[in-house]
Amino acid sequence: MSELITQPWSWWFSGTMIAVIMFFLLYFGQSFGFSSNFRTICAASGLGKKTKIFDINWKAQTWNLVFLTGAIAGGFIAKQFLSTGAPVEISQATINDLSKLGFAAPVSLQPPEIFSLHAILSIKGFLVLAFGGLMVGFGSRYAGGCTSGHAISGLSELQLPSLIAVIGFFLGGLIMTFFILPYIFN
């Protein structure tokens, strides 16, 4: 039993749990959309005073900030109590492709080539994370949602705008993966 918990969880169980979380949020009068938190943090930190778009009633979004806090705690619990620390078992084909870009086979969930302290102390390493975050934040607000708001909630409601957004997610992801990453890492 404990092995069932500490090994990586199956796609079908994880996908089911995400749907369950979405339905609980609907039942509790809210909707599943994580990137709204970035806007809420902007508004709550007073940035809203300069741009009227942030001049929203951010306190109505407190539930989502609480959800965010829980997500941080969930990551901590998963690491401390529910995992063995074994490296992520991605396919050999991906390991081979990434080795051509200078990435060693996984030793944990994340590549030290990007996320170690050593990596981010170089200008290139810092810019990778900075631009990555900047585009995620900018793009999710421009598109009006992220993976949770569009790919899960919006598509579940069969909304055409969400389908267009998800097509964009993949368009951007494929361009980065096949045309830009080879120039950044080699």
């Binding site: 995620v136 793009g139 421009y142 598109a143 997610f169 368009l171 830009i180």
Partner: peptide, 15 residues
């Protein structure tokens, strides 16, 4: 949706 989504996807695959 297309432009915002594409920018989001670029950041998703990078980070």
């Amino acid at each position: 949706y297309l432009a915002g989504g594409t920018i989001f996807g670029l950041g998703w695959a990078l980070s």
